[in-house]
């Protein structure tokens, strides 16, 4: 599983960070950082939730 963020769409509102802080982090510079691009499979349900809850539909999962 690969987590892909479309940074042209992302507006750094940190919703994903609220759901999966292990993978998504918005830092003080107001940019989103993907901490793990290929996270462990057990995080899939949470990442799928982040995909659904991202107000900009900026997150996708490959594989």
């Amino acid at each position: 599983m690969r987590v892909v963020v479309d940074f042209d769409l992302c507006e750094s509102n940190a919703v994903c960070m609220g759901i999966v802080p292990e993978v998504f982090e918005v830092r003080d510079d107001d940019f989103l950082y993907v901490l793990q691009e290929e996270p462990a499979e057990e995080l899939r349900p949470k990442i799928e939730e982040a995909v659904r809850r991202c107000p900009k539909q900026a997150i996708s999962i490959e594989g």
Partner: peptide, 11 residues
Amino acid sequence: MNRPRHVMQLR
């Protein structure tokens, strides 16, 4: 206001 990181950390 323009503090998304802190809002999430403090929610």
